[in-house]
Amino acid sequence: MDSLQRMDAVPQGRRRRPWTWERAYPILTLLPSIIAIAIFVYGFIFWTGYISLTKWNTLTVNLAWNGLRNYALLFQQFRFQADLRNLLVFTILFILCCLVIGLLLAVMVDQKLRTEALFRNIFIFPMALSFIVTGVVWQWLFAPNSGVNLILKALGVKHLPQWYVDPTIVPPGWHVGQIQLGLPIALIAVVVAAVWQMSGFAMALYLAGLRAIPEELKEAAAVDGANAWQTFWKVTFPQLHPITVTTTIILAHISMKIFDLIYAMTGPGPMFATDMPSLNMFNTTFQGNHYAQGAAIAIIMLLLIAVFIVPYLVSAFRQEGRS
């Protein structure tokens, strides 16, 4: 399971032999990749950061210093404020639904079914699709006069939801800055499509986790008189904690970057109800030619992700160093 720890089995005993050119081979092998990452990841991030501090908000390059003004303007913008609200709401709903559904499916699939492989494959196949395909298809499924609403109508629902066309935000009357806080109704359709695509990922991880729990643990609990329900919550679930952490972090970074799905499915939506920083950056930079403003959005996106990814990587590799 834990491949990080597995790699610690690599012995470190190669050091004492005399220095030869061969000793330099590993680092020479890695050198092209190191240089590429240094330029294309770190160098380009640095350059984007610099652009975000300039006046380059026209088609022609203008690198005159503008300080933090692009950032200040951004936080006053209705669209960007809506983006931050949407991103937060989307991330919470998306992660929660994926975790709950993923765990539920994993536990159900793990009941020694004869049809296990079939169900597992059905739940995971959306992962093989492009977010663009998902967006194009779900856009039709949530069209207010079609798809899901036809089923709801057949079930006797009177007030059919308008899904991604609905600009309403619930609950009413909670304003901060220029925007209303709360859950934009239009975002629900996007969450459903995203969960449809990614919950299989959570299931796959939980299933691997369930398989790695030693049977003796559950048997011991059963001997102690615990029923299946108690065994699950007292024994199995705590064992799955590291999986929950990993899955949450992976899903959170996917959520922070979400772009294609929304671009294909709804676009910015009514009153920017389904807009995201990623979409705003794309429009601002490549359609509006406000490069510095777009760079500022990109840097904020990067910071939002780095805040939890950097501690995650540090702790993962510190653990590895210790064991």
């Binding site: 380009f44 991030i45 350059w47 984007t48 652009i51 490069y291 990067l302 990814i309 540090v314």
Partner: peptide
């Protein structure tokens, strides 16, 4: 190697918007 690798790995988590203009 244990310092270098996470530094490389960080590259897969970044939002690609943050490298797009220079790219």
């Amino acid at each position: 190697a244990n310092v270098l690798f996470p530094i490389i790995l960080f590259g897969m988590f970044i939002p690609y918007q943050s490298v797009l203009i220079p790219l």
